[in-house]
């Protein structure tokens, strides 16, 4: 069985950034930190766990991103993925999910994966579109928001539980090949192992130029990034910790919460 795990590099949520003067994207300030999109850690874990549970499973890991994104491939190989592929894009900026999913489909098309795993959503642009679009490009069935799976390679099916409204779960049996997007919490992602990390350092990811895939026309237009409006005009407490604690204590007492 061949598995493809799709992962993305994102800016750490506490990094300081501002909107660029041309409003075209953000720019970071100070010392930005990047890492693997949190939901994608579950993707790599699930793929590697499948490899351990079944015989003859290979796990390829793929990212679409700038040079620095090789960092997340290294982590994925560190966690136990076999081979890494990197569709190398220009530096920072907006990329439409339709474009990204088309490229991944172009990559996956000829490689006959039985199972393609994606995270439920990227923490940066929060669109949640790449996985399900990828399934359409390839003509595969798809389940999103998966919180449990049981793969049955012998019958070429996979059973999944997906999270639906009101905390309920839908139980499905899907024919392979298929695309799943995994919800966080489906497993407990492991830490990379030292031996795998050493291997990741030695075996560099295979770089792919996006120019080898068709560049689709935009299906919706990204205009600009902006600051969202404040919903409530809250007070920001000033002073040192002690003073802030006193002020909050006063406010909550006055409102009779304490």
């Amino acid at each position: 069985m061949k598995i493809l795990a799709c992962v993305k590099q994102v800016l750490d949520s506490e990094s300081v950034f501002r909107i660029r003067d041309d409003s075209d994207w953000i720019e970071t300030e100070g010392d930005p930190r990047y890492g693997m999109n949190h939901p994608d850690e579950f993707v790599v874990e699930e793929a590697v766990a499948l490899k351990e549970a079944h015989r003859e499973v290979t796990v390829d890991v793929l990212t679409v991103g700038p040079h620095s994104a090789s960092q997340v491939l290294e982590r994925a190989v560190g966690m136990g993925a076999d081979r890494a592929y990197h569709i190398l894009t220009r530096e920072e900026g907006y990329l439409a999910p339709f474009t990204v999913s088309s490229w991944i489909a172009g990559f996956a098309e000829t490689r006959n994966y039985d199972l393609i795993l994606c995270g439920i959503m990227a923490e940066d642009d929060m669109q949640g579109q790449v996985g399900p679009m990828l399934a359409e490009h390839l003509g595969y069935p798809c389940a999103t928001s998966v919180v449990r799976e049981t793969c049955r390679p012998e019958t070429e099916t996979i059973r999944v539980e997906r999270e639906i409204e009101g905390g309920r779960r839908e139980l499905l049996e899907i024919a392979l090949p298929a695309v799943l997007t995994l919800q966080t919490g489906i497993n407990r992602p492991r830490y990379p192992s030292l031996s795998n990390l050493l291997r990741a350092k030695k075996e560099k990811p295979e770089l792919l130029d996006p120019a080898r895939f068709p560049m689709p026309e935009d299906r919706e237009q990204f205009l600009r990034a902006a600051l969202p409006p404040a919903v409530r005009r809250g007070v920001v407490l000033e002073g040192d910790t002690e003073q802030k604690a006193r002020e909050l204590h006063g406010i909550l007492k006055e409102m009779a919460f304490l």
Binding site: Q127, E220, Q221
Partner: peptide, 16 residues
């Protein structure tokens, strides 16, 4: 408008 980056910014999109 749709939020991104954990709600820190919003992206403005137009139909095409």
């Amino acid at each position: 408008s749709r939020t991104a980056f954990g709600g820190k910014i919003s992206l403005q999109m137009a139909p095409a």
